[in-house]
Simulated assay, not measured.
Amino acid sequence: MRSVLLTTVAAAVLTTGIVAAPTITQADDPTTCVPAESEQHGIATFGYFSSQFETASTIHTIALERHLPERASLIAITASMADTGLLNQQPDDDADGVGIFGWTPSEAIGDAEQLSDPGYSAGRFFDRMVEVGGWQDMPPAQVARVVQGEAKGTVYAENQASARVLMTMLQGSIDCLPVVSPGEYTHPTPGVSAGGGFRTPDGPGHDGIDFSGYRGTPILAAGDGTVVTVLCNAHTADGAPYSCDVDGSPQVLGCGWYLEILHTDQTVTRYCHFESEPPVAVGERVSAGQEIGTMGSSGNSSGPHLHFETHMAYPAWPGTAVDPRDYLAKRGVRF
């Protein structure tokens, strides 16, 4: 039943480019999808607000109309997710740019009114994308970064996994993610002290806190929820893939082996730098205190530690990050 519901919603997206609010309600079945609500962005569908789903579906529809391969949609959705959170920024918004890619209006790319049209912006993105030499063989996040004119940074690589999940939803081939009843929260590495802080003056882009310990230290799920991401995220400065099965270094970029858990209140906890691939799978329910892997040093790391992030919405991106100390304190956990 859940697969049929999702397929129906996805089909409506691809046909019309508009997502009607799904009639999903809390039921006795604990795996029923429960939408979140937002006055600004509408009802959430499978963790995404309808406005975000509309953006992704528009991008995918334009790609199909142009007979571009699936990876083209993935590249563009990754870019939009990283730069605007899949939201269509308007000229009068307090934002750095306009449209679903956050561009600055210009004669070369379009005026503010044109860029406010998601279909137009998606088309212009693909115009620029196909001019990137070798884009078909480059990592999607690297292509997104080049098209967006960013010389460096990991934000695109960090959003590629979430974009891939959303692509799967659009294609109607993933079940509605199960929801777990609320439970208690816990420290992700009991007995291990917190080190690097959240967005300190020395690390304004550090969106979490670090717990440094011994290799193999158990990492626990901070709360009940559903695993939504398990991925190796490691690459060199020029975008070349880097193995997560060996120790990384400060010169390697990315979270290494990492996973994300979607909790019942639609918040997300992210765990980075596992020693090896976490022994849990996407879609699997986990409980607070359950071991989800062990501490390692994969990715951008100078030694074994857990980089722990907390986000107030799914998909997780820098704009949704909050201080983990405050997040857990409000849930009864202090350290």
Score class of each variant (00 low, 15 high):
196 G>Y: 06
92 D>L: 09
306 L>K: 07
99 G>S: 07
85 G>H: 02
198 F>V: 01
276 S>G: 12
146 V>W: 07
71 R>W: 02
48 Y>S: 07
103 W>G: 10
220 L>V: 07
177 L>P: 03
192 V>F: 08
175 D>Y: 06
149 G>Q: 09
155 V>C: 02
10 A>R: 05
65 E>C: 00
61 T>Q: 14
166 L>F: 13
31 T>D: 14
207 D>S: 07
121 S>E: 13
107 E>H: 13
205 G>L: 09
46 F>A: 13
293 G>S: 02
182 P>S: 15
317 W>L: 04
102 G>D: 13
166 L>R: 01
267 T>D: 12
45 T>Q: 03
9 V>Q: 10
266 Q>V: 05
44 A>F: 02
84 T>D: 10
184 E>N: 13
175 D>K: 08
55 T>R: 04
98 V>T: 05
128 R>W: 05
112 A>M: 09
231 L>Q: 12
304 P>Y: 06
53 F>W: 11
13 V>Q: 14
23 T>P: 05
45 T>V: 09
312 M>R: 12
122 A>T: 00
183 G>Q: 02
7 T>R: 13
145 R>E: 05
290 Q>D: 09
299 G>N: 10
44 A>T: 12
270 R>I: 02
309 E>I: 00
329 A>D: 14
63 A>C: 06
139 P>Q: 10
231 L>C: 13
291 E>F: 00
66 R>M: 11
143 V>L: 06
57 S>M: 08
97 G>V: 06
114 Q>K: 05
94 D>P: 00
70 E>V: 09
14 L>C: 06
107 E>N: 11
123 G>Y: 07
216 G>R: 08
290 Q>V: 01
231 L>W: 12
96 D>Y: 11
304 P>H: 11
61 T>D: 09
161 A>F: 06
80 S>M: 03
232 C>I: 05
43 I>E: 10
220 L>G: 01
143 V>N: 12
321 A>H: 09
52 Q>N: 03
129 M>N: 05
293 G>N: 06
217 T>G: 06
61 T>H: 04
236 T>R: 12
73 S>M: 00
300 N>Q: 14
114 Q>F: 00
328 L>M: 15
225 G>A: 11
221 A>M: 12
139 P>M: 08
232 C>T: 10
7 T>E: 14
291 E>V: 13
210 D>Y: 04
198 F>Q: 03
300 N>V: 00
103 W>F: 13
62 I>L: 08
201 P>N: 14
259 L>P: 01
